[in-house]
Amino acid sequence: MSFAVQGRFTAAGRGVPRAREAAADGAFRAAAVAAALLVLVLLGLVAASMLWGGLPALRSFGLRFLYGTEWDPVAKRFAALVPIYGTLVTAAIAMLIAVPVSFGIAVFLTEVAPAWMRGPVGAAIELLAGVPSIIYGMWGLFVFVPFMADHVDPWIDATLGGLPGVGALFSGPPMGIGMLTAGIILAIMVIPFISAVMRDVFALVPPPLRESAFALGATRWEVVRRVMLPYTRSAVVGGIFLGLGRALGETMAVTFVLGNSHDFNISLLAPGNSIAAAIANEFTEADSDLYRSSLMALGFLLFVVTFLVLAAARLLLLRLARQAGR
């Protein structure tokens, strides 16, 4: 600080601060690059060590590890289809619910709500994002599961369970525990993340853009659909990915309401398992090397599944963007 002041006032010393600034600039650049690389390196190392730990299991079960449904710690035979299916299905249900609701919340907060409401409601949503997942799990088990068992599951089983084809997805005993309940709990958990991001980026849309659209006679919906969404698309997608990533990897809340069953059942009302829940449940008492290795391999698969889902979503959006550009 004092050097910079001196530098400005003594003509002779001008070269020194320049060099210093250049050095500082370089150092900052290096630090930024290092920080970015650190994330990549950490990610790579975590994935690599999971793969390393999971290799014995992958080697002894081969491809069957991906499509088999057995999970027998006594006979030491393991396969991962049930947790993979549960992870994908619960995350899909969560996103189906969370994305439209979050969008509604964000539009409401930026466009519809009176000014005095925006602060408190916004703060409440951010607080929701800070609630520990175990709380959602306990609430789900003690409050939400009974509600689903008494009111929602029987109705779904009676109305949708008999449909040809898709009926298998919606039939089952009304226990309240299962993939549908887990998906809804996950939706409640990721809504704060997605809606907070959406609200923030909607608020960043330059007022002249919105105002000129209104001036042209656009309705509120048309402004949101034609002006705000295109302007903020990449940030909105980022918010959705944040939520999706959390839904895929969530552990505690899911394990309480999912039923943790390694039986394969296609129905959404049936208990299932997820990769993260299986690892959390079983790692402490995994007493054989192959068992531990299978859980590590599951962890590696979670990486792969998350990567594939996010890559597929990005690809889809890229195509959408290209169509919009035409």
């Binding site: 006594v74 009974p146 525990i177 943790n260 069953s261 008492e285």
Partner: peptide, 24 residues
């Protein structure tokens, strides 16, 4: 300490099993 259960649902810990049994 864990087995391949032929049927049923799994609760986490004694408290999880107790809660499921009291619920269902």
């Amino acid at each position: 300490t864990s087995v391949a259960w032929p049927t049923g649902i799994g609760g986490k810990g004694n408290e999880g099993v107790a809660a499921y049994v009291q619920r269902i």
